[in-house]
Design a protein around this nucleic acid. Structure first.
Lengths: 197, 197
DNA sequence: GTCTATATTGCGATAGAC
DNA sequence: GTCTATCGCAATATAGAC
């Protein structure tokens, strides 16, 4: 293997294997073998197995920063909800491993949860809660809606579609062609749900 | 330790430890030590570490069968949604470990996912989709709502509240005293969201 | 930068005494 | 039914050659 192509390949296979079986479910033997390199390359490039996991995690969660650009571009609350939904669908489509790290860290947090995961999740929730609060101020959303709780409900609806896909593959199509239809369904449910009468 | 009190104690500590760190994150040494017994008791009572994990899983997911009683007792679609929400809150409150096994199995499925987990999840989704379809037939919900997708959205809203609790403990109260308020918020968002105009 | 070989620790499972 | 002791193996990490 040439130069530090080894580095890239390790990150690639680690992303898949860690996402499928978690930090403890994969050995550095299997990782190095799947990457077509030797076991010592993990320590050399990433310090340790946990160092490799941490590098994967950082790569996975980098896309959450995009929420800031969206917030800057979109001012209308309803448009913000629609943008969030479409962005979230695209995020999961562009990166089929993301949700596994996301939920795996939420339910069985590793040492990196507090520094790498929780901050970016909170940022998104806070920004969406702000958008919803703005909708309430504009009297387009009901005054008795709790912005943070509504933001969680919104995130829950869309993320659960991907979270449950393993269990519901026989009940509903998960084809990307349905995505825009689903965005509109969730948008309709949510905006009518929190909308002023 | 007397008689097969050992059995009970092992199940108890295994439930906590497996929920926190997953099947691969806990060793039988640690399990037996935490249970105040010896390592060989796991093989003796449960065959293997995986056998113990399987026993825990069955115990955890037994409560999902309660959905059948609810369905039998409640005929009104809106009432069914409210009953589902309250039942789900109670399920998570009665058993703080349930959601971890639930999502851990969804994202990093073990050998038991297909037989122990997926069937009970699907049952709940199917029953709720039936209730929503009935609401559409009664023209109380909109005709353009997809029942299965709406059932997933409903499940997503409420489950995500618990799923994200580790990340959002600084953003929103997770005290049980708020539960009824949250049930009403989710009920309002969902029924208005899918409701006929 | 990458390999092979190895040191060391911890794993799951079980044999055999009681 | 429960224990101690141990087997065989796989784990992470690293030393040292190239």
């Amino acid at each position: 293997m040439e130069k530090t192509d080894c580095n890239r390949k390790l990150l690639e296979v680690a992303t898949q294997l860690f996402s499928e079986r978690g930090l403890h479910g994969v050995s550095i033997r299997e990782l190095s073998q799947a990457a077509g390199t030797s076991i010592s390359m993990i320590s050399y490039h990433f310090g340790s197995k946990e160092g490799l996991y941490s590098a994967v995690l950082q790569q996975q969660f980098a896309c959450f920063a995009e929420i800031h650009e969206i917030r800057q571009r979109v001012s209308d609350p309803v448009e913000m909800v629609e943008s969030y939904l479409r962005w979230t669908f695209q995020r999961h489509r562009n990166n089929p491993y993301l949700l596994r790290f996301y939920t795996s860290e939420l339910t069985n947090p590793t040492a990196f949860f507090a520094t790498l995961v929780m901050p970016v999740i909170d940022e998104v929730i806070v920004i969406m809660a702000q958008a919803i609060a703005e909708g309430i101020r504009q009297k387009r959303f009901r005054a008795d809606v709790d912005p943070t709780n509504a933001a969680l409900a919104l995130a829950g609806m869309v993320n659960y579609f991907f979270l449950s896909s393993q269990a519901t593959e026989n009940l509903i199509s998960h084809s990307p062609e349905q995505d825009e239809k689903l965005v509109q369904q969730y948008l309709a449910i949510f905006t009518r749900g929190v909308g002023a009468p």
